[in-house]
Design a protein around this nucleic acid. Structure first.
Length: 474
DNA sequence: GCATGATCATGC
DNA sequence: GCATGATCATGC
């Protein structure tokens, strides 16, 4: 008897409609026992789950073709994990790994001919609730979404793709970093013991990497799904987000970073008072974040007043920070980040999936204000640049995170137990709260003082010095 | 003088 | 009411 499918394999919408039957269920609940018993799928890893959905639920013959999973429809199927917080809220578990980077082949491709583009421009995203150690047949599906990469995102992703491929063309595949790019990242793939791969323009072997949509990007996808208030979403009708910093038209002729840096150009060398007046920033209350307010006023757009909350910064996981440099060259202050979420630290047992990794591995826009006369506080806007933490520092940050996690899990949250600036380890932990009496929940069910992540002052100094040396060589 | 502890204005 | 993006205040 012919195996009749319950959907039209040539139609994206039909496949999508059929996928919605998964929602709220597990494969074991939906697929009959005989089919499961007859299947030889062992289901290793996430690829295993995707194969099981294709074969057991869609009854679609798995092929080893390089193109999209549903080849007649040109649709790629992607399973992606969600984690459920104690509050019951769903959160992205990880980046969306799209396609392995073949260092030898990708250098001969354009974005439009690349497998990444062919596979990922339209995806059926199947979100499941991740549970450690649970059989893949028993994972519950939460949302299915038809995700077409919006035109504007594609312009940024195309630029990211070229940044990655050009690095490989320069013989620097071993230096690729997820922080090089905005939405599309070259993420590490495979186990630590895996054999590195050859690259075409260097003898140095490079770790395996894959094109992936960054966690920050996936978080905005998830927020979009949540905002739709539906279990099944298709984004084909969605226009550009209104909180945009740059327009599609701008992106057709310049990269996102060029556009942002351009906005600072006319203000370079001008005093902060001058810029504040020009941009209408009110300094009468002398807010502590006045330099951040000024930088924000320069980079923002009519459609988006808050740069760090813009569509593009959120999707890229970008953060703009200001640095003040005294006339004698010293950095005024260490750099603070967000409060440590003790519950997140306890729940997340993998550095790569941690909030801190996401913070420190993503890209920064540093805005430098330099004092002209020592002690006069007569700062001018002196430099603006994008920055990514070097790999060796990110390795150091893993130790920092491990230590923070130990302290949190041991229920020993207290000033004397953290890394201090004096330890000279580039990062430390310090208080950050409205009042000392403000508390945050701990995994043990109690409350503890609020602390946050910090770059040491001397680490900020190193970043600025390195940038100055690079500028001198230009 | 620097590291550490404490807190402020803003805006959502 | 709280997170954010910081700087201010204090004490070693």
């Amino acid at each position: 008897m012919e195996n009749k499918l319950e959907y039209d394999r040539t139609s994206i919408m039909s496949i999508f409609a059929y996928s919605q039957k998964l929602i709220g269920h597990t494969l074991r609940e939906i697929v009959d026992e005989d089919t499961i018993a007859a299947s030889s799928l062992q289901g290793q890893g996430k690829g295993g789950l995707e194969h099981m959905i294709e074969s057991l639920f869609f009854k679609y013959p798995i092929n080893s073709d390089p193109g999209p999973d549903f080849k007649e429809a040109g649709l790629e199927l992607k399973g992606t994990g969600l984690k459920e917080l104690k509050s019951g809220e769903y959160q992205i578990k990880e980046r969306l790994v799209c396609d392995m980077i073949d260092y030898m082949k990708v250098v001969d491709e354009t974005f439009e001919t690349s497998l990444f583009y062919i596979k990922s421009r339209i995806m059926l995203l199947i979100f499941y609730l991740y549970k450690k150690g649970v059989n893949k047949l028993d994972l519950k599906f939460i949302y299915t979404v038809l995700w077409k990469l919006p035109e504007k995102d594609l312009l940024i992703i195309r630029h990211d793709f070229e940044t990655i491929v050009n690095k490989i063309r320069r013989g620097e595949a071993h230096l690729l970093s997820e922080g090089d790019t905005e939405y599309l990242g070259a993420c590490r793939k495979g186990q630590k013991g895996d054999k590195p791969r050859k690259q075409p323009f260097s003898q140095i072997l490079a770790p395996k990497r894959a094109f992936s949509l960054k966690p920050a990007y996936m978080r905005t996808v998830l927020n979009f799904i949540k905002s739709q208030g539906s279990s099944a979403v298709c984004n084909f009708e969605i226009g550009t987000d209104h909180e945009e910093l740059v327009s599609v038209d701008d992106l057709r002729s310049n990269s996102f970073e060029e556009i942002i840096l351009d906005r600072f150009d006319e203000f370079l060398g001008r005093s902060y008072h001058d810029i504040a007046q020009n941009k209408g920033v009110n300094l009468s209350n002398n807010p502590k974040s006045k330099f951040a307010l000024i930088a924000n006023a320069i980079a923002s757009s009519e459609k988006c007043a808050n740069v760090n909350r813009s569509e593009e910064f959120l999707k890229a996981g970008l953060t703009m920070k200001t640095i003040r440099v005294s006339a004698n060259g010293k950095i005024k202050e260490a750099m603070s980040f967000e409060n440590i979420d003790y519950l997140e630290v306890a729940e997340c047992d993998s550095w790569i999936d941690s909030r801190l990794y996401e913070l420190f591995s993503s890209r920064f826009l540093f805005v430098i204000f330099k004092e002209q006369t020592f002690g006069a506080e007569d700062y001018i806007l002196s430099d603006v640049f994008f920055w990514t933490m070097p790999k060796e520092d990110l390795n150091g940050a893993e130790l920092y995170w491990n230590h923070i996690r130990e302290v949190v899990l041991a229920n020993k949250i207290s000033a004397e137990n953290w890394w201090k600036a004096k330890d000279r380890k580039k990062f430390h932990v310090r208080p950050k709260a409205l009042k000392k009496t403000d508390l945050a929940p701990t995994p043990q069910g109690g409350y503890a003082e609020k602390f946050c992540y910090w770059f040491n002052n001397d680490y900020v100094r190193d970043i600025v010095n390195k940038r100055n040396i690079e500028n001198e060589h230009k």
